[in-house]
């Protein structure tokens, strides 16, 4: 039984780190504008798909990955410039709806460009499973975990230590006050979308050797990443990681110990339970609404 449990937990952490990495991408745009960017999953997909096709076209692997990240960042910047910025006086809800529209558009575009097939990327290093007791995991899983750790540290550093990061946070607190003290709000938003797309692309590239991808893969990853971010506390980068890992472990234990048929249901019941008692998420600040 213990052997089993160990494998369940390792599987949970494996899946959870994918969720965490995607969830992290939501944090930045949320911090900049209180908007949940529902096209985040599409950034993940575009990063992965571009990498696959650039690599397939004969470009060396590392170069293809870098170019794919660059392409995704350009898509993120264009999304901000042509879809979000023209509606800058719109409410948060309107902007969220714009991002939903953008996600459908990006999915359709990916379908036209890359077709309906499923694709995979080769793993970064040889695919020999690593054993821990009787449980196993793949080297690629470790890269995903490392990638998540590095990304979360960088995101924290960016918001806590750099001027740009603080300026982005200021835009979120009060857009008008931020612009009055000389912060270029539009520019900050543009940066936020760019960085968010970058994180999405990195997530896509890291997870595709394990999960494969197709034009519609962003929907599921986006949804699970969003759950992770909500569970941990929206806007808190550590929270997104904690939420992602927790979600993965709950799913895995639920499937392993109770029933694999109710895996998702068990996870969602736990999320609802957490949000019922802590609406701000696990690590989120308790919201004090001004009356």
């Amino acid at each position: 039984m213990f052997d089993q449990l160990l494998q369940f937990i390792i599987s949970g952490i494996t899946v959870g780190s994918v969720y965490a990495l995607v969830g992290l991408g939501f944090t930045i745009i949320y911090n900049a504008s209180d908007v949940v960017n529902f096209a985040q999953g599409e950034f993940v997909m575009i990063g992965a798909m571009s990498a696959i096709f650039l690599y397939g076209a004969g470009i060396p692997y590392p170069l293809a990955l870098a170019a794919a990240v660059a392409i995704t960042v350009v898509v993120g910047l264009m999304l901000e410039k042509f879809a979000v910025e023209p509606a800058k006086n719109a409410s948060v809800v309107t902007t969220i709806i714009i991002t939903i529209g953008a996600s459908i558009f990006l999915r359709g575009a990916a379908l036209l460009v890359w077709g309906k097939d499923i694709y995979g990327l080769p793993p970064f290093t040889k695919d020999v499973p690593i054993s821990i007791g009787s449980a196993t995991l793949l080297p690629q899983n470790i890269y995903v975990m490392l990638g998540t750790a590095v990304a979360v540290l960088l995101v924290r550093y960016f918001f806590d230590r750099t001027m740009t990061g603080k300026a982005i946070m200021a835009c979120s607190c009060n857009r008008r006050a931020a612009s009055l003290v000389g912060i270029n709000v539009n520019r900050m938003l543009l940066i936020a979308y760019g960085v968010s797309a970058l994180l999405g692309a990195v997530a896509g590239i890291l997870v595709t050797p394990i999960t494969y991808t197709s034009y519609d893969a962003g929907v599921m990853l986006g949804l699970k990443g969003f759950c992770a971010a909500i569970l941990g506390g929206m806007g808190n980068s550590m929270g997104a990681v904690a939420g992602g890992l927790l979600l993965g472990i709950i799913e895995s234990l639920g499937a392993g110990i109770i029933s694999s048929g109710y895996k998702d249901a068990i996870a969602f019941v736990v999320i609802l339970g957490v949000l019922f008692f802590r609406p701000g998420g696990l690590l989120g600040r308790a919201d004090s609404e001004r009356v």
Partner: peptide, 20 residues
């Protein structure tokens, strides 16, 4: 008799149960 979601990314949990 194990099940998974078609968009799931990892089925090692179910497979570990089968292994047992």
């Amino acid at each position: 008799d194990e099940k998974y979601g078609n968009s799931d990314t990892d089925m090692t949990t179910q497979v570990a149960k089968i292994r047992a």
